[in-house]
Design a protein around this nucleic acid. Structure first.
Lengths: 210, 210
DNA sequence: TTTTTAACATATCAAATGGTATGTTGTCAA
DNA sequence: TTGACAACATACCATTTGATATGTTAAAAA
């Protein structure tokens, strides 16, 4: 019964949560403030109490929601693997397995927003670029560590491979969304797996690709 | 002086041309009919004489403009190459070389529209999917032909490789747009080159990758 | 030359849009 | 207990939106 009826942070979080889903499904420009408010139990007045403009909401989603999603889904899980190649593949595999019809159709929230908004609104673009940059940087770090451990051939350029890996991640969701076909995700997964097998250090412990 | 002041086809083409540029830069949902008409020498009345709705214009751009662009930029040039790996790389290289600051920032028109609209409007999605499907199909055909000619290892699956190649093409532009950096295009190009070198048949005539 | 048609232009509209001005009331410090 | 403020709600607004109704006039057919 200690439930307060007014709570700045929680209300803000609720608005952002509802907004994220709506934007994910309809695009930033395809969602109105009225749409967002409708999915919340607050009013338009509350919305503009928390966010000065609709843009500001978008920026907050980029800075907070999307950044946290990338950290949670792609970056933090990598730390559990000593072999970066194994880690990257395992993680991608998990995400593909968890891909529902909804995710298939709506694609990657980060990629959607980048393609839609980064050229339209330079500040939006900068914030999204920051998230992408972090993603690539972290994959690169992880690859460097693995290279020191002998899991990657010394000849490979970790930065280049990191860019490639992140590109494939986005590409997997982009193609699946384009073709509306989950099978293509596995097809691309297999291609990435082959690619990584060529740059893997210790030949080791993986079964042959079927 | 034989210039007619009224010409159905030309006016339609002008509207679509102006609309394509505006949509390319601002997204479909970010462009109003007034915006489009402003960049043309016709009025809003003319617009709706040629297109029943704004949607219909979008569909026409997908069906005609985008399909023709993919054919012209990616598919038809491949026919000039017997070795599909060489053809794919040469073509991608040309496009990257021709990439201006504008193209870098605005990305791939097809990919932009897919990520923005395919989930929002299913009919739009279907039309864009048709273009993507054609692209993959044609690359696959080209790879099959090359495989018969011994330019591709017999073990490679042409469909899988075609999907991968198209995904990388879109991915190159997507990443470059994300990071606002042309160098990443070359980085990804090099990765694709390495990938293709592993599946190339005749070891032949390519200099080593640096 | 006249008629007819369709390729446009002009004027207008209802709905939706992002945003504001102005209330109302929970909540906490004093 | 009370006063003050911030967390909301309500009502409203100018502008933009996609679209229509209704003109006007090139231009092909008769």
């Amino acid at each position: 019964m200690s439930k307060r009826t007014r709570n700045l942070e929680k209300t803000r979080a609720h608005i952002m949560e509802a907004a994220f889903i709506q934007i994910y499904r309809n695009g930033f420009q395809g969602v109105s403030v009225a749409d967002i408010v409708e999915k919340t139990n607050v009013t338009k007045g509350a919305f503009f109490h928390h966010f000065p403009t609709k843009q500001a909401l978008g920026y907050a989603i980029a800075d907070e929601t999307l950044r946290e999603m990338v950290l949670d889904r792609w970056i933090r899980p990598l730390a559990a693997y000593r072999n970066p190649v194994r880690g990257i593949l395992k993680q991608l595999r998990k995400i593909i397995e968890a891909t529902t019809e909804e995710t298939l159709v709506f694609g990657c929230p980060l990629n959607n927003l980048i393609q839609e908004m980064s050229a339209v609104d330079p500040i939006f673009g900068e914030k999204l670029r920051s998230v992408m940059g972090m993603w690539v940087d972290e994959v690169e770090k992880h690859l460097r560590k693995g290279q020191s451990g002998g899991y990657l051939m010394q000849t490979v350029n970790p930065r280049q491979l990191a860019e490639f890996v992140v590109m494939v991640h986005e590409g997997v969701f982009g193609m699946a969304k384009s073709l509306k076909d989950k099978k293509v995700m596995w097809s691309l997964y297999d291609s990435l797996k082959e690619h990584l097998s060529y740059v893997s250090g210790k030949s080791g412990d993986r079964k042959k690709s079927g």
